[in-house]
Amino acid sequence: MQHFPCPFCGLRNETEFHFAVEAGHSRPEPAERVSDAEWAAYLYANKSPKGESREVWLHLSCGEYFILSRDTVTRAVLGSVTLPGVTR
């Protein structure tokens, strides 16, 4: 079982987490000016890198989303940070 670091709660078992989305995709807006192709790319086109990746994960226990950097081959966790713009 993998061990993921929630930036708010610390190391927890992977069963407490859900993958949310690949990081770095910004939502194209407004809808009226977004082409079908752009929208489809936003919804479905992922880089799915082999190796280092940045992903948004949700820690189900505390309800916080955060960015997790990890290696998809070795499963090494490289770090985690809060979403940009988080104010507490």
Binding site: H18, A20, L58, L60, G63, E64, Y65, L83, V86
Partner: peptide
């Protein structure tokens, strides 16, 4: 969680 996503 969907509401939290939009909130955060």
């Amino acid at each position: 969680y969907r509401l939290e996503d939009a909130r955060q």
